[in-house]
């Protein structure tokens, strides 16, 4: 059931992921030293992104990147990475 749900989510989002996903994986691919996003809970990914946006979580780079995405776009990315 869960597997089916995930597959469906991935299908709806498209194999390629929402806009921006292919750039995130330039640093966050499977096995990446910077941190792997695939398979992490969507809420966690989205919360980290919003913490970068607000400055609540200090960052060297992600604070500059997150501002290129709306909260809705962040949620779509988070859902896709969680299901990947």
């Amino acid at each position: 059931m869960r597997i089916l749900g995930l597959t469906l989510a991935a299908l709806l989002l498209g194999a390629a992921g929402p806009p921006g996903a292919a750039s995130c994986t330039g640093c966050h691919a499977a096995g990446a030293g910077i941190g792997v996003l695939q398979g992490r809970p969507a809420d966690d990914i989205a919360a980290q992104m919003e913490a970068f946006r607000s400055g609540a979580r200090p960052a060297t780079l992600m604070n500059r990147i997150v501002r290129g995405f709306s909260p809705d776009e962040v949620r779509a990315l988070a859902a896709w990475f969680a299901a990947s």
């Binding site: 994986t25 330039g26 640093c27 966050h28 691919a29 096995g31 990446a32 030293g33 910077i34 060297t60 780079l61």
Partner: peptide
């Protein structure tokens, strides 16, 4: 120093891709 280390992480990922 962190950014120098992230530069190396990026390089490993880019070359893997």
């Amino acid at each position: 120093a962190q950014e120098a280390a992230y530069a190396e992480d990026w390089y490993r990922t880019a070359t893997t891709e």
